[in-house]
Amino acid sequence: MSEMSKIVRTIAAIVFPFIMIYGLYVIAHGHLTPGGGFQGGAIVASACALLLVAYGSMWTMRRIGEKRLSVFESIGAFFFIALALLGLFFGAVFFNNFLAGSSFLFGDIPMVGSNTGDMNTGGVLPLMNFAVGIKVVAGLFVIILVMAYASNHMEKKRGEKQG
């Protein structure tokens, strides 16, 4: 995909931070409001897809290679499984929520019933949300990036053959 006109590029650059902030909000408040790692990751990947459409796949590939995105996805998967294994060590079972109730990071217990919500609750759930968020952003964006780059490359080769 080649880059689009200057109007589209400017509007995409203005809109991009707002979509990004909304996606990061959905990831970070996954244990309080509807949403979570997968939903917020899909929104952030949509913002990156907007940049890809506006600026072209060559520009995006130069900024973020697919190797770096693969590394990010592996980091997300590693942290997810590592948190589950830490539950096995500190608690009793795999996927044990060992941070809930301890006076450590994210360790508070909220009042039962409807309450105003506190960021410092949830045990390992916010950390797992972040791990899955990184994984989903990298995974969904690398699919679109690699497909767009290959399609652009193929089109260029077809043009060379004809001309």
């Binding site: 996954g30 979570g36 609750t121």
Partner: peptide, 15 residues
Amino acid sequence: QRETGANNGVTSVVF
């Protein structure tokens, strides 16, 4: 809310 400490029940079920 008592066991996982999260207000969002869906996330606590999923994770």
